[in-house]
């Protein structure tokens, strides 16, 4: 169990990997805004093209990226079917029984699908494929720092995330150990119905939870012994700096957003309501 990957980080040298993690969080948010600004066929075309360009830039194989879409395939199809049948319009394509499909409905469904796909593609590209979880945690801490003014425990939150990431492989390994131990005692995990199998998990979960608490206790003591007193007066070994390159990327995405707004004005074909 030594080769558990943290998240889905894909190590490579690419323009996207080189970006500052904080900038990537901002870019991901801007990109989400862009996807919701899109209204007509031009916009969604440009959006899809830009997303594919990003995939090329990231040097992450398409095969791996498509894998991240698999869990949402059902939602994607469900949304498409609902939209095709439930969107009203003027030009009826065909209809049977009480169901009517309009041209607008087909457009609407296609737009929604592009929106969801691009949303998942870009956020996972920016935040998981090209950014290590550690860099991401640091970036979130750094970006949320202003919230300290409102007494939000930003540092504590980031510390919790780091510790969670640190202990995922340790606890996974432990789960397998406990499973083997229980198997040796005759617990059967692979037979029986759903309820039976769920009940077989109890002898794994209880020792795991108990040992997690013991670990937490020991870790807290070890941290205190290393003079940990929360975020106050703490310094950092690595302080990230924004480069011209990061600002250039920001400019590019903002320009893209402006382009989307402009394209929206070119009324052509079906335009999404609102």
């Amino acid at each position: 169990m030594k080769n558990i990957a943290f998240g889905q980080y894909y190590p490579a040298r690419s323009p996207l990997h080189a970006l500052d993690a904080r900038m990537k969080v901002i870019l991901a948010i801007l990109y989400i805004v862009c996807t919701f600004l899109c209204k007509n066929v031009f916009c969604f075309g440009a959006l899809l093209a830009s997303a594919l360009l990003l995939v090329l830039c990231s040097r992450v194989p398409l095969r791996i990226i498509l894998r991240s879409l698999r869990p949402v395939l059902f939602i994607l199809l469900f949304t498409a079917v609902l939209n095709v049948f439930l969107t009203g319009g003027e030009t009826e394509l065909f209809g049977f029984w009480r169901l009517h499909v309009y041209v607008e409905g087909v457009y609407h469904a296609a737009f929604m699908m592009v929106r969801i796909v691009v949303l998942i593609l870009t956020t996972s590209l920016f935040l998981t494929y090209t950014t290590t979880p550690i860099a991401l945690t640091d970036a979130i801490e750094s970006l949320l720092t202003p919230l300290r003014w409102l007494h939000v425990p930003v540092h504590e939150f980031a510390m919790m995330m780091t510790i969670a990431l640190r202990f995922i492989p340790t606890l996974t390994e432990e789960t397998y150990k406990i499973m083997s131990a229980q198997k040796a005692r005759g617990v059967d995990f692979s037979h029986g119905g759903l309820i039976r199998r769920a009940r077989a998990l109890i002898p794994i979960l209880i020792p795991l939870v108990v040992s997690s608490f013991r670990r937490a206790d020991e870790l807290a003591m070890a941290m205190e012994c290393r003079c940990y007193r929360g975020g106050k007066g703490r310094t950092k070994m690595t302080v990230p700096h924004l480069h011209v390159y990061d600002l250039f990327a920001l400019l590019l995405v903002v320009a893209f957003g402006a382009g989307i707004v402009w394209l929206n004005r070119q009324g052509y074909g079906y335009t999404m309501p609102r």
Binding site: T162, L165, R166, Y228, R234, T235, M237
Partner: peptide, 17 residues
């Protein structure tokens, strides 16, 4: 007793505190 996800980050934990 190891807190961070990278060896060097963990060694830095004490001095950072």
């Amino acid at each position: 007793q190891l807190v961070a996800t990278l060896v060097e980050e963990d060694v830095a934990f004490g001095p950072e505190n």
